[in-house]
Simulated assay, not measured.
Amino acid sequence: MATEQRDGVVDGVRLDVQRLHETWMELLFPRQRGAQHSVLGKWKPSTTGDKAKYRIWGALGVPVVLVLYPLMLLGVAVRFYSRRFDSLATRIGLGGTVLVMTVIWGALTAIVRTYGGFGQVGFMAVLVASVTAVVSSALAFIFWAKGGRATTVLLAYPFGVTALLLPPVVAAFYSDTVGAVVFTQSRQIAIVLLNQVFQPIGLKDLLESQFELQGFAFVLMWFGIAVPLGWLLGLVVTLANLTRPQEDEDENKSGGAEASDD
């Protein structure tokens, strides 16, 4: 049994890598991805020049595949959890999504108000964070429901990440206790981003001269993190769909279930 599972994993990895490389090859050459199942078959170069270009492009694709494969696996994991949200959101709709988020955050706000011991300031912090989370979740649902891969990647995922990242930052403006943690960690993250991301591309000095990390700048900073992070998650899910279509996984699961029934 263990050997069969190991062989299955190896076969799955081999198929993923093959699809990624075939997709890379298809950027320049026709009939590369899955062409072995077509009547015409896989296109192969016939002239010496085409053969040289084919080999060079194939060799260039090897490091690209090595970089993309871990991202594709991340996309499979993100897709797994996002499908759970998709299934729930489809059943309850926009009103249900807003209601669920309102109940969850409203309950937290009520607990803080009644038993938290944080006073009026703590209550306002959680209340504002709750409103931020509910609004961001609603926007994420609206853009997801609108349909289309571009809209989902460009808008739905960023607002979904915003619903997770922004509430603590907003709450920090109303609570010194929360602010001591959030603002301190935000400054540390900003230093890392300036030195590791923006300095190599020559933008560190410009950002330091134009922006001061105070007040509302913290909100802009985290929104600026949430948006590209949402794009990244949307792109890795797209990569997962391209490399390992959901239909294949569903077929494998149903095939496995049938085999176990037998």
Results as ranks from 00 to 15, higher is better:
Ser82Trp: 11
Ser82Glu: 12
Arg83Gly: 08
Arg84Gln: 12
Asp86Lys: 08
Ala89Glu: 14
Gly95Cys: 10
Gly96Ala: 03
Val98Gln: 04
Val100Lys: 11
Val103Arg: 06
Ile104Tyr: 01
Gly106Met: 00
Gly106Thr: 11
Ala107Pro: 07
Thr109Asn: 04
Ala110Glu: 04
Ala110Tyr: 07
Ala110Leu: 07
Arg113Asp: 04
Gly119Pro: 15
Phe123Thr: 11
Val126Met: 04
Leu127Ile: 11
Val131Trp: 00
Val134Ile: 03
Val135Thr: 09
Ser136Asp: 14
Ser136Leu: 05
Ala138Ile: 07
Ala138Gly: 14
Phe141Ala: 03
Phe143Trp: 08
Phe143Cys: 04
Gly148Gln: 10
Gly148Leu: 06
Arg149Pro: 07
Ala150Cys: 04
Thr152Asn: 14
Val153Arg: 00
Leu155Ala: 15
Ala156Asp: 09
Pro158Lys: 00
Ala163Lys: 00
Leu166Gln: 08
Pro167Thr: 00
Ala171Val: 09
Thr177Met: 07
Val181Arg: 00
Val181Thr: 13
Val182Phe: 00
Phe183Tyr: 15
Phe183Ala: 08
Phe183Gln: 13
Ser186Leu: 09
Ile191Cys: 08
Val192Gln: 06
Leu193Ile: 12
Gln196Pro: 01
Phe198Met: 08
Gly202Met: 10
Gly202Asp: 05
Leu203Gln: 09
Ser209Met: 12
Phe211Ile: 05
Phe211Glu: 08
Gln214Ala: 13
Gln214Glu: 15
Gly215Pro: 10
Phe216Glu: 07
Phe216Trp: 12
Ala217Ser: 07
Phe218Thr: 09
Val219Asn: 13
Val219Tyr: 07
Met221Ala: 05
Trp222Pro: 09
Trp222Asp: 04
Phe223Trp: 11
Gly224Glu: 02
